[in-house]
């Protein structure tokens, strides 16, 4: 099953995503982390997510660009977190953003289950400099493609999943 989750900052997406993955019958559970750790704040974020996942049987794979090169065994259940960081790696760190959607499709076809987490960053009404606008436009395209692949898509609103497409697996 392919799941797509979006929502604002601090809305409980990760917690819900982990709950879904834990409820899926799975052999191998992989946490595919896309955030580059570059300062104390990101270190704290990683530590918080690690603590949240502790004891849930995940192996962690870090990949902040070139998703297709991530070592994921076929048939795994994968929690991919998250698309905004992956796109940032591809756009601002010598990557290639056009490979994101094909890599998502390939990953979806080889996983037993794939839960993709993104972020709603589109509703603050601010017009940003060109580079940021371009980032937003591409992220929107990638989100749409990921939601298109999904059997179940939802926006998480302060811990409450609001379905956008399909039916939630039992969690």
């Amino acid at each position: 099953m392919i799941v797509f989750l979006t929502g604002g900052s601090g809305c409980g997406k990760s917690t819900y995503a982990e709950k879904l993955v834990a409820s899926m019958p799975a052999g191998r559970r992989v946490y595919l982390a896309t955030m580059q750790v570059y300062d104390e704040e990101s270190e704290r974020r990683v530590a918080r997510h690690r603590a949240q996942r502790a004891g849930k049987g995940f192996e962690t794979v870090e990949r902040w660009k070139d998703l297709a090169g991530a070592p994921i065994a076929p048939g795994s259940t994968v929690l991919l977190e998250d698309l905004p960081n992956l796109l940032a790696g591809e756009m601002f760190d010598g990557g290639d953003w056009t490979r994101v959607i094909p890599a998502l499709r390939a990953l979806a076809s080889q996983c037993e289950n794939l839960v993709i987490v993104s972020n709603d960053v589109f509703s603050d009404g601010v017009t940003y400099p060109d580079e940021t606008q371009e980032y937003l436009r591409r992220l929107a395209q990638i989100n749409a493609a990921a939601a298109g692949l999904a059997d179940y898509a939802a926006e998480v609103v302060y811990s409450i999943p609001v379905p956008l497409k399909g039916e939630a697996p039992c969690a």
């Binding site: 929502g7 604002g8 900052s9 601090g10 960053v121 589109f122 009404g125 601010v126 940021t132 302060y158």
Partner: peptide, 24 residues
């Protein structure tokens, strides 16, 4: 307040996240 581009200002970032955590 959490559905915008992540602010550059650390205080604003913390505010948005705190509102999310509290409202959950």
């Amino acid at each position: 307040v959490g559905a915008g581009v992540v602010p550059i200002d650390a205080g604003e970032r913390a505010f948005r996240e705190a509102v999310g955590r509290a409202l959950c």
